[in-house]
């Protein structure tokens, strides 16, 4: 189980990385921690001609307090987030702590995870719920996309072949905010079969409820979120969650539906406990 041959390039800076990606006509992949790409390479499921190592680009390795939000570089590892105590964003540590295993978290990066866009991954669910913004660098410079618009489907994102996730910007939670995150894994560290995230931030009038680990991208349950904002946990019942999922995730088979109903209810419950 050895990877097919590829070339390896370590650019000096973000523009260098973008240029390398742009110059190889879709046959290059950026390499972050390689914790998802590595297995796919060894299994020869992925066979890029060129790997562009962005894991050590200084511009992507910092965590900065920007006042209303934290800017976390795309090459920051999950374990760095786990160990950081981000004022107003400690929930980021909680999410990070439950990604896979520590050895994976030591290498895997937040930008890499987003770009890989596995429907069952944590960041593609947590960041939309936190109303985060994804900062993308490409040949024309930087652009920002709301996290909820970033992932387009299974392994499909907003990124063009010559673009990179350089940072995510996560707004700080107000002191009275409620955050609930729940995922169901068959065993510790494995990909979940259902997941959900809720943010209720009265000060910012933000009500977010997202469901993940679907066949495609995570989905938002906006109406139910708004209802929870008004009525708290009273808004959440088997019926109301089922109805919300009927709209957002139609056609689920009964067992998956059961798991996602449970995920949503428990995420909300956790948020209010």
């Amino acid at each position: 189980m050895k990877a097919a041959a590829f070339e390896y390039l370590k650019p000096q800076d973000v523009p260098g990385a973008v240029k390398a990606l742009a110059g190889s006509a879709g046959d290059a992949k950026p390499l972050g921690g390689g914790q998802s790409l590595g297995p796919m390479l060894n299994l020869r499921l992925a066979r890029p001609k060129l790997l562009v190592d962005v894991s050590r680009l200084e511009a992507m390795r910092t965590i900065e307090d920007k006042g209303a939000f934290w800017r976390i570089g795309g090459a920051v590892t999950h374990s760095a987030i786990e160990d950081a105590n981000l004022a107003g964003c400690t929930v980021m540590s909680d999410v990070a702590r439950n990604i896979a295993y520590r050895t994976i978290r030591n290498r895997g990066t937040i930008g890499g995870s987003l770009a890989h866009a596995d429907p069952a991954a944590d960041w593609p669910l947590a960041l939309p719920a936190l109303a985060a913004t994804i900062v993308i660098a490409g040949p024309a410079g930087e652009r920002s996309v709301p996290a909820g618009k970033f992932m387009k489907g299974a392994f499909a994102t907003e990124l063009a072949e010559d673009e990179l996730v350089v940072a995510v910007e996560v707004p700080k939670l107000s002191p009275g905010a409620r955050w609930g995150y729940w995922k169901f894994c068959r065993k510790t560290g494995e990909f979940p079969e259902a997941s959900a995230a809720m943010l209720m931030d009265p000060e910012r009038k933000l009500a977010r409820l997202w469901v993940g680990a679907l066949d495609g991208a995570p989905q938002s349950l906006d109406a139910l979120a708004a209802d929870i904002a008004m009525r708290g946990t009273q808004a959440v019942s088997e019926t109301s969650v089922s109805a919300a999922l009927d709209l957002a995730v139609p056609g689920q088979e009964p067992v998956s539906r059961r798991l996602h109903v449970t995920a949503v209810r428990r995420a909300v419950q956790k948020g209010f406990n």
Binding site: G148, K149, P202, V249
Partner: peptide, 19 residues
């Protein structure tokens, strides 16, 4: 927890999953 009226999300979701 103080109930509130949520502002509309800045982003609409990408649309429902394929059904």
């Amino acid at each position: 927890f103080k109930p509130f009226e949520a502002s509309a999300p800045a982003v609409a979701a990408a649309g429902p999953a394929v059904a």
